[in-house]
Design a protein around this nucleic acid. Structure first.
Length: 943
RNA sequence: GCUCAGAUGGUGGAACUGGUAGACACGCAGGACUUAAAAUCCUGUGACCUUAAAAGUCGUGCGGGUUCGAUUCCCGCUCUGAGUACCA
């Protein structure tokens, strides 16, 4: 029988499903291995060929590890809360749960056809109440926790209350809001419950606070920083503006340093680690307080009221405290709260005009326009704490209200931006290091040399000066060494319907958790999915949406990343009803050994997951500090569009003539997208094209060499560009095994590349050759029990070693090539040997599981599945050759090859080579200066 | 601007610690089998020069360097892609 891939694949997919072949159990006898894919959002469009790339790689790895004797956990599920289903619901009124269900079924059908070895008994869906019950539960744990800097971990809020009872706020060192109160134990005791709750909220790891958020009016919701790209929403590309709102936030900043340090312990691609480092944005420096001079000019009452304990000062953050003697001005962000109070009457008009101008500029313009120097003098002065010098206080939009303290010191000699500002506004430029050069023309940020014009640090170097200043400032209560992070707390609420309800209700304006036994707090049914007329989130439409029939529930839902920040633990024990996962299961599976997914999640999902993991570890629920030991980013598969060229007339109207790619220069043409599925090797199938675009049914085709050649361009894969390649179609034509191997053959897993179906025939041909290897001329299955020849064993063991090495370093494309070589060699040798072919089947099975299972069963292994076989051992004995053909180079140029015994030592090789007649000819009678012999590699003679 | 990744035939790509560059596949050209098609098989295929054949020269983005020997290591540059951006 010829290679009947359809029957074979259906047969074995059914077999695996019925026998639950890939169901993983806790099994302490075997070492565990956890292979995880980033689970998909089930979109309506279904899978295209780019989606399964990572899944195929992880599946090959999983099957390989099973053969190697590991107990492999390889699950799959769906990140099924999300915006598209809700948008669809708004348009059509269809409940997102229905859309999601339909899409999941499509995904499942498509995934099943590829023959993955997923353990579907552990499937999770983030929108399923039995799942989001535990997402809500984790939210509650976060609400009930605070971050204790003494122990450097999260603790239950009760330990904080104990501290308040015992000693008040005095010796509490916590990551908390800036406006926490100082109080004595006696004060705490006399507070009302409401006052206590209000105060505790400032410490909780998830908290409610008024903050500036990214508001997207088109989507009617707030977005996290990582969901905004260049001032537009990542999903949909709608403009985003800044807005103050009461919002749920997660105190991820508490974990900033641990998230940074943890990166050094995990095997992740360097670019992803780098992105996370930049996102966290740690800068080590100092905060310094500049006293406001001459308060008569200001409305000092206002200052006192707003900044009770630090009035009369402006605090700046700097990474170069050593340059402080070079400060010639101070700048506030235009939004800084002290600006109004510190503006003198004379400067009021200028400052107001500047603020108005800043407001008019959109966030985008402000980011794009980095060249123009602008600012306004407030009329006030501040005093440099180290020199006592009086310097001007300005406002400028290059200072961001959201970073540091919203105020910076200007050191023109050391910072180019400050230099430009000072030059533009005629402020002094003071040299502070003797090594600074050319400061009349530009700033010199060097840290070399000794300080000059710098008071008590004159003559010191950078390290000494920094230490001295930090100590001095601290002693004088004018500042201190400080570490600043760019990363902000993560906004946690979304004004959407299709997400996890936040398990909170409000009493007297303060949030309280529902009881744990009341989880899950089910998403209520509503009639429409739009915000209410009064601008409340969709949940405002729900009837009786209140706790105890009197306290209103929170109306926003959780963001998309909530459900995906812990899902790998749910797979460990997916159906548990009393815990998010059983303690023993977590103890056994521990963490993810290999995680495969796209790099686009670098600062979103992958950071939030690490955060929640560390939090769960602090509370003792999980074992490992980091969730994903090794990460591989599969490359993006781009679309590859084909074009036909329509001749246009003088007025630019399209004619009924299409010209082939190579001849289009002779005409005036316009390019039209053409469905890539009717183009093969850039040759258009004209008949199919006429069906695809009936308006060209009678068109004239100008051909070259009898063919219509299409143009090519790389674009995003999308329906409108007719460049979507559906895996189902390829499976229909070539089978899943061919698709799997071709996706791997296309190139290195981690490299982005356009999809191109052109080479798939080669892989299909290979599988047919492989199939034929087991058959005679009449297509009858035929193997024999002869003694394998040395050549056969060599071909086999070469591929055993190669595939093993390749899989371990995730180089799947090179092993596909090696399989082709091995099969060609064995075909040439007319190998029908059972022993050799059996091992070959096992080695190939992770890549092409269906055909291998079929052959395995034809080889007489009834009932069992290949998955429980052992990976064949590589035996170097078969690889050893008696002779090696040494390339002989003279002065680096290869001249000839000589067969020499591998047993020879370097010295003997040298003697034999030099004695050779042909070699002598190339030496032209000269004596060799030097002979380099690398045994088993090369001989190079230098003359 | 900064950070990271990359650049190899007509195409996708290979070359693992510096050791015969272009494996493997696609495409193309020619041939065998066939009434024909499909399928299969064989031969050739980096460029240049030359030939009956052989041999030779150049060649891994560009310019240098280290080395007996560099796609691989070092320095400088160009281009492409990704991320990030007045971050003090």
């Amino acid at each position: 029988m010829d290679y009947q891939f359809k029957e074979i694949e259906q047969k074995w997919q059914k077999h695996w499903a019925q026998n639950q072949t890939f169901k993983a159990e806790k099994d302490s006898a075997k070492p565990k291995f956890y292979v995880l894919d980033m689970f998909p959002y089930p979109s309506g469009a279904g899978l295209h060929v780019g989606h399964p790339l990572g899944y195929i790689a992880s599946d090959i790895f999983s099957r390989y590890k099973r053969l190697k004797g590991y107990n492999v956990l390889h699950p799959m599920g769906y990140d099924s809360f999300g915006l598209p289903a809700e948008q669809y619901a708004i348009q059509t009124g269809q409940h997102p749960a229905l859309t999601t269900e339909t899409n999941i079924n499509t995904y499942r059908t498509q995934l099943d056809k590829i023959g993955f070895s997923f353990d579907w008994s552990r499937e999770v869906r983030t929108s399923d109440p039995s799942y989001y019950k535990w997402t809500q539960w984790i939210f509650m744990q976060l609400f009930n926790s605070w971050y204790n800097l003494e122990t450097d971990k999260a603790e239950d809020i009760t330990t904080l209350i104990e501290k308040f009872n015992a000693a008040g706020s005095a010796d509490v060192r916590a990551v908390c809001d800036e406006d926490v109160k100082s109080f004595l134990p006696s004060d705490w005791a006399t507070m009302t419950d409401e006052q206590k709750q209000e105060e505790l909220l400032k410490y909780r790891l998830t908290y409610l606070r008024e903050s500036t958020v990214n508001w997207c009016p088109a989507l009617g919701t707030v977005l996290a920083n990582d969901e905004v790209k260049d001032g537009y929403s990542e999903r949909g590309g709608h403009p985003v503006e800044q807005k103050k709102m009461m919002q749920w936030s997660m105190r991820i900043s508490a974990y900033a340093d641990r998230l940074l340090q943890g990166l050094n312990t995990i095997d992740w691609p360097e670019p992803v680690k780098e992105m996370q480092r930049n996102w966290i944005g740690k800068s080590v420096g100092a905060s310094v307080r500049f006293k406001i001079d001459d308060l008569r000019l200001t409305n000092d009452k206002e200052i006192v009221n707003r900044q009770s304990s630090i009035a009369y000062h402006i605090e700046v953050f700097t990474t170069r405290v050593d340059t402080i003697f070079g400060v010639s001005y101070l700048v506030l962000a235009p939004e800084h709260e002290l600006v109004t109070a510190l503006t003198t009457p004379e400067q009021l008009d200028a400052v107001n005009a500047y603020i108005a101008q800043t407001k008019k500029k959109s966030e985008l313009d402000r980011m794009a326009d980095t060249k123009t120097v602008s600012g306004a003098f407030t009329g006030s002065y501040v005093v440099n704490p180290v020199s006592g010098e009086r310097v001007q206080l300005w406002i400028a939009d290059y200072v961001l209200a959201g970073y540091g303290t919203g105020a910076v010191m200007g050191v023109p000699s050391g910072d180019q931006r400050d230099w430009l500002f000072a030059t533009h506004f005629g402020l002094p430029i003071v040299q502070i290091l003797d090594a600074q050069k050319d400061i009349a023309t530009q700033a010199d940020p060097t840290k070399e040399g000794k300080y000059i014009n710098s008071g008590f640090i004159n003559g010191m170097n950078y390290t000494e000066a920094t230490a001295t200043l930090n100590a001095w400032l601290e002693e004088k209560n004018a500042g201190k060494a400080k570490v600043n992070y760019r990363m902000r707390d993560a906004i946690f609420g979304r004004q959407r319907y299709w997400g996890e309800p936040i398990p909170v209700y409000f009493k007297d304006g303060l949030p309280y958790l529902v009881k744990e036994e009341e989880l899950p707090l089910l998403l209520p049914e509503i009639d429409k999915y739009l915000p209410t007329e009064t601008g409340e989130p969709p949940l405002g439409r729900a009837e009786n949406w209140s706790y105890d029939d009197q306290y209103e529930y929170e109306l926003s839902t959780m963001p998309g990343w909530a459900g995906s920040s812990w899902y790998w633990y749910r797979y460990m024990d997916a159906t548990n009803d009393s815990d998010f996962a059983d303690k023993d299961a977590i103890e056994y599976w521990k963490d993810v050994d290999l995680y495969i997914g796209g790099a686009e999640h670098a600062t979103g999902h992958l950071l939030y997951s690490r955060f929640w993991n560390k939090f769960l570890k602090d509370l003792g629920y999980v074992k490992e500090e980091e969730p994903f030991k090794k990460l591989i980013n599969q490359g993006m598969i781009q679309g590859r569009s084909n074009f036909v060229y329509r001749v246009v007339d003088e007025e630019g109207r399209g004619t009924n003539t299409l010209v082939s790619y190579g001849l289009r220069k002779d005409y005036k043409t316009s390019a039209l997208h053409v469905d890539v599925n009717i183009v093969e090797n850039e040759v258009l199938n004209v008949e199919k094209f006429k069906l695809f675009r009936p308006e060209f049914a009678n068109a004239e085709f100008i051909l070259e060499n009898g063919k219509y050649i299409c143009g090519v361009e790389v674009e995003k894969m999308s329906k409108s560009k007719f460049n979507v390649v559906n895996p189902d179609v390829l499976i229909e034509n070539y089978g899943a095994d061919t698709l799997r191997m071709y996706e791997m053959f296309l190139g290195p897993l981690e490299q982005s590349k356009p999809w191109n179906t052109n080479g798939i025939e080669g892989v299909f041909k290979f599988l047919r050759k492989f199939w034929r290897l087991f058959h005679n001329d009449q297509w009858v299955f035929h193997v024999n029990d002869s003694v394998p020849s040395k050549a056969e064993l060599k071909a086999l063991h070469k591929i055993i070693k190669k595939v093993q090495d390749d899989v371990e370093r995730f180089s799947f494309n090179t092993s596909v090539s090696s399989f082709m070589i091995a099969v060609n060699e064995l075909t040439e040798l007319k190998c029908k040997n059972r022993q050799v072919l059996e091992d070959l089947v096992v080695v190939l099975s992770p890549y092409a599981p269906h055909i291998c299972e079929e052959l395995w069963s034809l080889l007489g292994h009834e009932g069992g599945s290949l998955s429980y076989a052992e990976y064949p051992k590589f035996n170097p004995a078969y690889m050893v050759e008696d002779e090696f053909s040494y390339p002989i180079s003279v002065n680096g140029k290869t001249r000839l090859n000589l067969n020499l015994s591998l047993a020879l030592q370097s010295k003997e090789i040298e003697e034999t080579v030099l004695a050779n007649e042909d070699v002598q000819k190339y030496l032209e009678g000269k004596a060799p200066k030097k002979v380099i012999v690398v045994p088993g590699r090369i001989v190079n003679i230098v003359i």
